[in-house]
């Protein structure tokens, strides 16, 4: 009897492990099969500028551009701000308060993105519109600012961990040499924490690329690369906002649908690559909850 139960138990463990291992392959496989029509029928024509389903034009470059630009700008805003704040929480702030600040930040990091979207529509897009005298505040810039705020807590708390994990002796030695605090931080703490910080930024990058709801509500959803190309105060489109708005409109198994899934697959591959690279940097690993 006991042997029988043991067998059942082992079976349960193996089956559940297989399930959780296979899911990711299943997702990749399903996306690949569904985007096969677009790859096969479209080929390089997918990488053009015009998206117009009725004319069978499925150029995804505007969406790629949007995703790239929105993510890069949000990182340009959030990374310096986040790293300086992390230096503050780990090096300057009294250690007694660090735990409270950190719990607060970790709570903020998990606020549902739809709520950021609501705040974006109700405040940010209106402010951006008034500030720059635009007709509409739904722009690439608005989306980038909103995203930078969304990833800020993640960056702060991961960088704070990275800096905090630098052993105390390095600081003491540097201090013993008569260095000022900023020199201690710049010359001995940050170089040691560097790989973890890079890992943190890569994770934030992945999160920003995959963010859907908040971006979708404030970006304006025009499938065009703005003119001139650096005009950030123009509406645009990211892969995620395109998917969120249009996937239900395209008929299942049409080329249109297939091209949408193809975009999703590109996004997935980029994000997965980022995740794996980030894991190589974050050797201390195991920080999954952000």
């Amino acid at each position: 009897m006991s042997a029988y139960i043991s067998k059942v138990g082992k079976g349960y463990i193996i089956i559940s492990t297989l399930i959780s291992m296979i899911i990711i392959l299943l997702i990749l496989g399903v996306l690949f099969l569904s985007s096969y029509d677009a790859i096969h029928g479209g080929g390089w024509r997918l990488f053009t500028l015009t998206w117009n389903p009725p004319n069978n034009q499925f150029g995804i470059l505007p969406m790629l551009y949007g995703s790239l630009v929105v993510t890069v700008i949000s990182l340009v805003i959030a990374v310096p701000l986040g790293i300086f704040t992390a230096i503050f929480t780990s090096e300057i702030l009294h250690p007694k308060y660090r735990i409270y600040v950190k719990s607060f930040l970790e709570l903020l990091a998990g606020i549902p993105s739809i709520i950021y979207g609501l705040i974006g529509v109700a405040f940010f897009s209106v402010w951006v519109g008034e500030l720059f005298h635009l007709q509409s505040g739904r722009t690439i810039f608005t989306a980038a600012v909103l995203l930078s705020i969304m990833i800020l807590p993640t960056i702060i708390t991961l960088c704070d961990d990275a800096i905090h994990h630098v052993p105390q002796k390095y600081r003491e030695v540097a201090k013993g040499l008569g260095l000022y605090k900023h020199e201690v931080i710049i010359t001995s703490v940050l170089p040691i924490a560097k790989t973890d910080i890079i890992g943190a930024v890569l994770l934030a990058l992945g999160r920003a690329l995959g963010e859907t709801m908040a971006v979708m509500l404030v970006i304006g959803s025009i499938d065009k690369i703005p003119t001139p190309i650096y005009n950030l105060l123009a509406p645009g489109q990211t892969i995620t906002s395109k998917l969120g708005r249009e996937i239900a409109e395209s008929a299942f198994s049409s080329i249109h649908f297939s091209a949408m899934v193809f975009m999703g697959m590109i996004l997935l591959i980029i994000v997965l690559a980022l995740t794996f690279i980030a894991q190589q940097f974050l050797k201390s690993g195991q920080r999954l909850y952000e």
């Binding site: 529509v121 897009s125 209106v126 519109g129 007709q135 509409s136 505040g137 739904r138 304006g220 959803s221 025009i222 499938d223 509406p235 708005r245």
Partner: peptide
Amino acid sequence: GADLVLGSNNEEQTAIAQSDAA
């Protein structure tokens, strides 16, 4: 010539009301 693409009637109504030249 379009500057924004939106979805439902509600969303479009909101964008036009928020703008002063739409």
